[in-house]
Design a binder for these strands. Structure first.
Length: 496
RNA sequence: GAGCCGGUAGCUCAGGGGUAGAGCAACGGCCUUUUAAGCCGUGGGUCGUGGGUUCGAUCCCCACCCGGCUCACCA
């Protein structure tokens, strides 16, 4: 007997025996939990000899004839339980005999210390609250060392429940993600931002450069797209007079999957009327301080061996200056496509498909500058070609009032003084639309109603976008975006 | 999409042209303070899938599937 299906039928017969004994696990609807394991340990002196109740999954089982020790675990806290036949009687002893590693049980008994001084519960009552019909990948652990468990990456993502019960680190990373998101929401709410929800199903997916997912509405007989950004709807709300709005929502991009990309991910976008780029930079600094305090209890913390300091203002650098510094390409070389391409060639980079200087600048940034931006840094002044929704730089018509924030060599935010000139916006969107029609799947469609909204007058506004998954990676030390997404997109196993 | 690496028992892994091993888990026995409990015993595998080479393939070759990493893509 060792195949999992054999185990399953064996455990079902144990389940039937439990029912014969009048102990059907699935009839129990609750179990008292007077204390957590931590509370019992913290208050041992007053609890010694007192009766307590708790419940959890059986994560270790040591049977010695007519007595046994077992561990129950709940909320990553473990408690040892002692059962003795003479104390619980024949019936409960038989019930206990039907308990397997992985079952969910509830116990009631007195707090005591074993010979080796471990605080434990001396069980007087025991309930099986759910049986596990499968052998679970519960590892062994002592003094921080681990044996076995579940390490197969694919299985951890496909069966996250097994990952969560057997890998404490996965649990901690995902809890950190949750704290990052809720802290962000709290921070913005406290500052008077209004949280809104805008459509996921759109006629045209705009606001970013990405290929959308396409779906279909039967009743309207209409092809719809899943949103790729939140931007164009939120700006309409600014026009409407909601001066501080934000949305934290899922967006969908029909693109490749990597350690930094999942087809659906969580985006925060916020817009604040009457402020400019520099104010948004300050907001990002304050937001990160707030999140750091909530997650780590400090504005300075260590992640992956690096000490990140959010207490100080972020470093501000100029995009083209940094490219010159790290790639050796002068700003003058990045004024026309021809010399930009030859600079790429000089660096041994492929440049055949490049059609605009903006794209080359972004590539150089990614390749040479990003890896150097470990401590929090704002890179400012992005090219207009790749920033179709940002306000022009007043003295450099090829640049915009845009910045991106970098931490640990990864982009964490993208922000700008929003373009509110409807004529300029229309021209830029028409240019994008033309590229789209010429086959660039990632170019932006023309959104006429958005232009109309701008024509009605949008106040000067600062905007910000943060990939919450990447922010969670930064604050949890996760190496892959899949570690901060509970159920990442995977190819299905069976293909029939 | 390309390159490299991986897929062997429920889990973690080793092995390698003659149809497979370990530890944990499982099953049976002993054990009334153990804690990676211990001791004795038992069972369990389409070696990712499909072809090919071979007397013989889990191993070699090819294709495919799934995953990981790197690159490309992703403003």
């Amino acid at each position: 007997m060792s195949g999992d299906s054999d185990v399953r039928s064996l455990r079902i017969s144990k389940l039937e025996r439990l029912r014969e004994l009048g102990h059907d696990p699935y009839t129990f609807e609750e179990h008292p939990q007077t204390h957590t394991p931590e509370e019992v340990r913290a208050n041992y002196s007053s609890l010694e000899g007192q009766t307590v109740s708790m419940a959890g999954r059986v994560t270790a089982l040591r049977v010695m004839g007519k007595a046994a020790f077992f561990d129950i675990t709940k909320d990553a806290q473990r408690m040892q339980v002692y059962v003795k036949r003479d104390d619980v009687g024949e019936l409960l002893w038989e019930v206990f005999g039907l308990v397997d590693l992985g079952d969910i049980v509830g116990v009631t008994g007195e707090v005591f210390k074993t010979r080796t001084e471990e605080i434990s519960i001396h069980a007087r009552d025991l309930k099986v609250l759910a049986k596990s019909l499968h052998v679970l990948p519960i590892g062994k652990e002592k003094d921080g060392q681990h044996w076995y468990g579940l390490s197969d990456v694919e299985e951890r993502y496909r069966k996250r429940y097994l990952d969560l019960m057997s890998n404490l680190e996965s649990r901690e990373i995902l809890l950190a993600r949750s704290r990052v998101v809720s802290a962000t929401r709290r921070f913005l709410d406290e500052r008077g931002f209004i949280e809104v929800e805008t459509p996921i199903l759109e006629l045209e997916a705009g606001g970013a450069a990405a290929r959308p997912f396409i779906t279909y509405h039967n009743a309207l007989d209409l092809e719809l797209k899943l949103r790729i950004s939140l931007e164009l709807h939120l700006k309409r709300l600014i026009v409407g007079g909601l001066d501080k709005v934000y949305e934290i929502g899922r967006v969908f991009r029909n693109e490749g999957i990597s350690t930094r990309h999942n087809p659906e991910f969580t985006l925060l976008e916020l817009y604040q009327a009457w402020v400019k780029m520099e104010d948004i930079e300050q907001l990002v600094e304050e937001l990160c301080r707030y999140v750091a305090r909530e997650v780590y209890g400090s504005e300075v913390f260590q992640v992956r061996g690096v000490t990140l300091d959010f207490s100080k203002p972020w470093q501000r650098v100029d995009l083209l200056t940094e490219i010159e510094k790290h790639a050796g390409v002068k700003p003058s070389e990045l004024q026309d496509l021809q010399s930009a391409k030859s600079a790429m060639d000089r660096l041994g980079l492929y440049s055949e498909d490049e059609t605009a200087v903006g794209g080359i600048i972004e590539k150089l940034l990614e390749r040479f500058v990003e890896p150097t931006l470990i401590q929090p840094t704002f890179v400012e002044n992005y090219p207009i070609e790749t920033s179709p929704l940002a306000k022009k730089h007043p003295s450099h018509p090829s640049l915009t009032r845009r910045f991106e924030g970098y931490v640990l060599g990864r982009e964490v935010c993208n922000a700008f003084s929003e373009l509110n000139d409807p004529i300029d916006q229309l021209e830029r969107m028409q240019r994008q639309h033309k590229m789209l029609q010429e086959g660039d799947h990632e170019a932006m469609p023309l959104d006429e109603d958005f232009i109309y909204a701008l024509e009605c007058g949008m106040p000067p506004t600062g905007g910000l976008g943060i990939g919450m998954d990447r922010l969670a990676m930064t604050f949890s030390g996760a190496e892959s975006i899949r570690d901060v997404i509970l159920f990442p997109t995977m190819r299905p196993l069976e293909q029939d």
